[in-house]
Design a protein around this nucleic acid. Structure first.
Length: 861
RNA sequence: GGGCAAGUGGUGGAAUGGCAUACACGAUGGACUUAAAAUCCAUUGGCCGCAAGGCUGUGAGGGUUCGACUCCCUCCUUGCCCACCA
């Protein structure tokens, strides 16, 4: 008989809603458990990726609930963003209406999946009651100097007509539409995430329950390098050192004596000044012009030949007063370090290739201990390894493992070996060399030293301005008299105007809405203008997990007491694609709130599970490939529980899973087998007396072993797929007993216990079926009010064990023997076994290894 | 170029130092059926053998160990992340 999933699923979904089974109530009586899945972008339709993500989360949430935790399991919508705006342009619809419609559809689909969300806590980021707090947070950051406006080269997507954060540029393209990203000079709002770089890096060590690859990805992204900023001095046309300084950053200060030229990035602000009036001027300008036309992707492709030109100018190396030429080349990037490098062709492969190409001088300063007395003429590539210093003045003979530190200290503490004008004073001109304050503060730079130990970060400040309509308005006002002024807190939210013409072209749509733009300056009351950019939507999602704790709280961004109870999130489940973006931003926001004194912790997510993608025949499901499997169709055919079970069973949660239309039949068959356990078996009636026959005992043992295995799998390492295998094994064992006994009452008690256990263990995976069966075997109320079964250690205890008998490590027999058999007897029994005897006779027994309760290995020679 | 994963039957996968391939899909054979579907039963890594049993087998090669899918070294392959990062 097939189980009637249509009826059952509707029935229990209605029951859960009516009885508020999933409502999370603030209560300190029970331990809390906050389980969160990454909220979706409301596209209007759940795809298999969502189904997998939310099923994994739901299994864990329901399991924790049955274990007696007070579970918070909320859901919401990341509702601002370009897709809705683009859909609105396409359909000539209002993005707000469109978004609301999509949310309604998605909510219905999620309810149809039977996910145990507390729907009273639903949040949607496009609602003023939510984005008001985005604006509040922004103002707090502005107040603390963490939100600032700056003109700089930024990533620009011509297709999306907006700027992008560094984290949103993937392989040189826009993360949404893959259009090649251009560099544009624009004035934009940034968040100073770089102020948190050290803490974001250090605190990764607390995230013991995050996948190591996410940790590594974040480490790489933050990208700390420790080195030395070395101060080269620019020479005038007569070749004498001036007081202008060119700082270069290196992590290889041990090679400073081998620096034979300097290279500036083509965008370096000092170049034009350096080349003025020199014969090379035009050639250099032409080169800069040429490079500026290349996209970053082309320029940074690894196999491209390095190109460059001599600037005509020279600089002086502070450690030995050596005059070396300044080049301009495309292999040096303005974004990293100081935009200038010292080139050591003998010990850096890029410099080596460039020097060979342009016939630049080389000098060996590190000798490879395995290949000493290397000469420049013999080099076919740079030697980048460790070794002993040569040609390095007082450091000669020292190994790089020591010299690195020694040279850094020496440069930081000693004056440069200038010849020429006396120690130069800090000049305003010189401080313009640095293009970004985060790369080292020139005003503090001491000119009395050769260099300074410095740390550089790959992490850049977070660009949050978007020239789009569908987002949170940045609450800033521009006044001709007062400059940049924060919108007053009492005026929040600065509402996003309705009925705005959106074309997707020609800058921020809000800039054309006179009513929105024109306002009074909060300070001087004269006419002023509002900021027309909106916030990147990653801003919205960087704190939504906090809002869930008190979603309707009107007096502040969140209720401190509720947050201190529920937070941090105990288990977060989501896609690996957010390994950097969302997860880094959320960590940053949490630290910021912690600094404000609003939170008593600085990491938002204790445990993280990144689920794998759902593929079809090895390919990502996508509309363009036409290989999308619609969850709705599967649900209509097999029901939600089958879909949920299959998606968990098919692969471990972290791995990719390949959608297999046929394999889902197995899950469907299994649920029917479970259903038929009570259809075919007379469950009601008096329990017959417990029997001590072997069959009952074995089944009881299997039941309790299954409880142990499933509990471990769910609690420890997310082995959700094997949890289901264990339940399947138990069901198989029940059928074996039933078929043998033909409903013989002697094993009745054990069978009943086993069936009951199956229903309970299956509840997190197949909640509807379990509820129905639980009721049908005579229980009242929801199964989720039941406690998770506990195994009886006596039932698991075995009297006998199958010992493995090996001879020279090869299995020659297995023997069923008492657990507590003593070693001598075990040895004797094993040796007496006929097959073992065959392998042992005529040979000398060298050794017998006994592993208690497991095996005997007889080593013969 | 650097980093991190992973590599097991026809397929998804299990086993984290102790019986390799649990559980499931598929396949083959059988029962039931007029027939099919559904269901149930049996078999299912390869080779040898009537059988008992044996040999072989977890990407390749080496090592540690009484014993290695598991630990170590070298290499190959695939996936992901970062990348002219100085």
């Amino acid at each position: 008989m097939k189980y009637p999933f249509q009826k059952i699923e509707k029935k229990w979904q209605a029951y859960w809603q009516k009885n508020r089974i999933n409502q999370a109530v603030f209560s300190k009586d029970k331990p809390k458990y906050y389980l969160l899945e990454m909220f979706p972008y409301p596209s209007g339709k759940l795809h298999m990726g969502h189904v997998r993500n939310y099923t994994i989360g739901d299994v864990l949430a329901r399991f924790k609930k049955m274990q007696g935790y007070n579970v918070l399991h909320p859901m919401g919508y990341d509702a601002f963003g370009q897709p809705a705006e683009n859909a609105a342009i396409k359909n000539k619809a209002d993005p707000a209406k469109w978004t609301k419609q999509c949310i309604d559809w998605m909510r219905e689909e999620m309810q149809q999946m039977g996910f145990s969300y507390d729907w009273d806590r639903e949040v949607a980021t496009y609602l003023p009651e939510y984005y008001k707090w985005n604006q509040w947070i922004f103002l707090k950051m502005f107040e603390k100097g963490l939100a600032y406006k700056k003109e700089s080269l930024v990533n620009w997507c011509s297709s999306c007509q907006t700027t992008l954060a560094n984290e949103e540029v993937i392989d040189g393209g826009c993360w949404r539409c893959h259009t090649k990203v251009e560099q544009k000079d624009l004035e934009q709002w940034f968040l100073k995430i770089t102020d948190f770089a050290q803490r974001l890096l250090d605190d990764l060590k607390f995230l013991k329950n995050w996948p190591s690859r996410v940790i590594t990805m974040q480490e790489n992204w933050i990208g700390k390098s420790i080195g030395v900023e070395i101060y080269f001095r620019l020479c005038d046309k007569g070749g004498r050192p001036t007081d202008k300084i060119i700082p270069v950053f290196t992590t290889r200060q041990d090679t400073i004596f081998g620096a034979t030229y300097i290279v500036l990035a083509p965008e370096h602000p000092l170049i034009k000044e350096i080349i003025k009036g020199l014969p090379q001027e035009n050639k250099v300008l032409e080169f800069i012009e040429k490079v500026s036309k290349e996209t970053k992707t082309i320029r940074t492709a690894a196999d491209v030949k390095k190109e460059g030109v001599f600037s005509g100018a020279y600089a002086v190396n502070p450690v030995n007063n050596e005059k070396i030429p300044i080049w301009v080349a495309d292999y040096v990037l303005m974004e990293y370090g100081t935009g200038a490098i010292m080139a050591v062709p003998t010990h850096d492969q890029r410099d080596f290739l460039f020097a060979k190409e342009h016939n630049l001088p080389m000098r060996i300063v590190i000798q490879n201990p395995d290949e000493p007395n290397l000469k420049v003429e013999d080099l076919t590539c740079a030697y980048e390894g460790e070794g002993n210093q040569v040609n390095s003045s007082q450091f000669n003979g020292m190994h790089t493992s020591q010299s690195k530190e020694k040279i850094a200290d020496w440069m930081s503490a000693n004056p440069p070996k200038w010849i020429g004008p006396a120690s130069p004073k800090a000049s305003a001109e010189a401080s313009e060399i640095s293009h970004d304050k985060s790369h080292g503060d020139l005003s503090e730079r001491r000119r009395e030293i050769m260099g300074k130990k410095t740390t550089h970060w790959r992490l850049r400040d977070w660009l949050i301005s978007r020239q789009r309509y569908w987002g949170t308005p940045i609450p800033i006002i521009y006044c001709d008299k007062c400059g940049i002024v924060a919108a007053p807190e009492e005026d929040l939210p600065v509402l996003l105007p309705q009925k705005v013409a959106i074309t997707g072209k020609g800058g921020s749509p809000l800039s054309k809405v006179e009513k929105f733009i024109n306002c009074k300056c909060p300070k001087c009351k004269s006419n002023a203008r509002r900021e027309t950019d909106t916030m990147a939507t990653f801003f919205d999602s960087s704190w939504y997990f906090l809002r869930f704790c008190s979603p309707k709280y009107a007096k502040g961004v969140f209720d401190k007491e509720e947050v201190s109870y529920w937070m941090p999130v105990d288990q977060y489940v989501g896609g690996i694609e957010h390994a950097i973006l969302h997860l880094l931003y959320s960590r940053f926001f949490t630290k910021f709130f912690n600094d404000l004194g609003l939170l008593g912790f600085s990491e938002p997510f204790i445990r993280l599970l990144t689920q794998g993608m759902v593929l079809k025949e090895g390919e990502v499901m996508s509309k363009s490939k036409g290989n999308v499997v619609d969850p709705d169709i599967i649900i209509k055919k097999y029901g939600t529980d089958t879909l949920r079970l299959y998606i968990i069973f098919a692969a471990p949660p972290e791995d990719q899973m390949d959608w297999n239309e046929r394999a889902i039949e197995g899950s469907w068959r299994f649920l029917n087998r479970v259903w038929n356990l009570i259809e075919n078996y007379e469950f009601k009636g008096n329990d017959s007396s417990s029997s001590e026959d072997k069959e009952s005992k074995d089944l009881r043992q299997k039941t309790h072993l299954t409880i142990k295995n499933v509990t471990d799998d769910l609690a420890k390492d997310f082995h959700l797929n094997t949890a289901i295998s264990s339940i399947m094994e138990l069901v198989n064992a029940i059928y074996v007993v039933l078929s043998k006994n033909n409903n013989n009452k002697s094993s009745d008690l054990a069978v009943k216990e086993a069936i009951k256990t199956v229903i309970l263990l299956l509840a997190p995976f197949a909640p509807h079926l379990s509820e129905e069966m639980w009721q049908r075997i005579g229980n009242k109320g929801s199964i989720f009010k039941e406690s998770w079964p506990k195994f009886d250690s006596n039932a698991i205890k075995q009297d006998t064990i199958t010992f493995i008998i090996q001879v020279n490590g090869k299995v020659r027999a297995t023997m069923e023997l008492p657990v507590d058999i003593d070693e001598e007897k075990l040895k004797a029994t094993a040796l007496a076994e006929s097959n073992v005897e065959k392998w042992v006779k005529d040979k000398t027994i060298k050794k017998v290894i006994i592993v208690p309760k497991k095996l005997v290995n007889i080593v013969v020679g």
